[in-house]
């Protein structure tokens, strides 16, 4: 029995002749936190977009629970329980943080366009959403996002990252792609976020943590995947990864990495 929730197989993607990712493969198991690290241009963001469905691979495939993931992002979110955050936060500035967060929960109950129609009809009769708003408050509190009833436009970058994580968590995801969630966070924010990520993983969610900050990732991840030049150059325990020759080569330039 394969416990891998997320499995990338030989993914390749190039943009106008420039290869961003070449034959990249790795897996994330249920309840596992996998850190995807690598320098700028290593192909991390492309991997996230390929998994999330924002981009289509030239070849290779992404499996979720053994089933190929296809179609637009919204379908992946509903079918495979995929949730993600963005390197550059994507939020509606004119809405409060809480309203931004409940969008994740709103999507949870949607199986089709007709469900959306029902949601509209329900919204007219009884706006409701109180349960979602309360859940949003609880998740935000656990993450350490306090200014939840302020407009998202007024929040700091760090708060926006927490907002995005909260929105993703409200989806009750089976797979969570967190793209640079720690960038711009203060130390107490890092603590709250780390604890939440651990809690989510303990609930069985497969977490793919993409970040520049190798130390934070290493402190949290069960396994680390190191990318360089569009390929996976190391995949193993964090301690081994940090000590590996590949890590040395990628980050300190003391050797040649096989591309």
């Amino acid at each position: 029995m394969n416990a891998d929730i997320l499995s990338c197989q030989e993914l390749t993607k190039s943009y106008g002749g420039v290869k961003a990712v070449t034959g990249a493969s790795f897996t994330v198991g249920a309840g596992e936190i996998v850190g995807l690290v690598g320098p700028n241009g290593a192909g991390k963001s492309t991997m996230v977009d390929l998994i999330g469905g924002e981009q289509q691979p030239d070849s290779g495939q992404v499996l979720a629970g053994g089933v190929p993931l296809a179609g637009p992002p919204s379908r992946r979110a509903r079918r495979a329980g995929l949730a993600r955050t963005y390197q550059y936060p994507q939020v509606a500035g004119a809405l409060t943080a809480r309203d931004n967060i409940i969008v994740g929960g709103f999507a949870r109950g949607l199986s089709s366009g007709f469900a959306l129609l029902r949601a509209a009809a329900r919204g007219v009769v009884a706006p409701g959403g109180r349960a979602l708003r309360e859940e949003a408050g609880q998740v935000a509190a656990r993450l350490g996002l306090r200014r939840i009833d302020r407009l998202a436009a007024d929040l700091t970058l760090g708060e926006l990252r927490l907002l995005e994580v909260a929105r993703a968590l409200l989806q009750h995801p089976r797979i969570a792609l967190l793209d640079e969630p720690f960038a711009g966070l203060a130390s107490d924010g890092i603590a709250g976020l780390s604890a939440s990520i651990r809690t989510v993983a303990a609930g069985g969610t497969a977490v793919l943590l993409v970040d520049h900050n190798v130390d934070i990732v290493a402190s949290m991840a069960d396994r680390m995947v190191l990318m360089a030049g569009g390929t996976v150059v190391f995949d193993g325990a964090p301690r081994d990864c940090l000590a590996s020759a590949e890590m040395q080569a990628v980050y300190f330039g003391t050797g040649q990495v096989d591309r």
Partner: peptide
């Protein structure tokens, strides 16, 4: 409409206006 605006549907609709990518990725068609 005022009720619809405040409902989760209305919130998603208004979020779409500014952050369509994220609303789509959250599972809303």
């Amino acid at each position: 409409l005022s009720r619809l605006r405040r409902s989760p549907f209305g919130v998603a609709l208004r979020a779409k206006a500014q952050a369509s990518v994220a609303v789509e990725a959250a599972g809303v068609p």
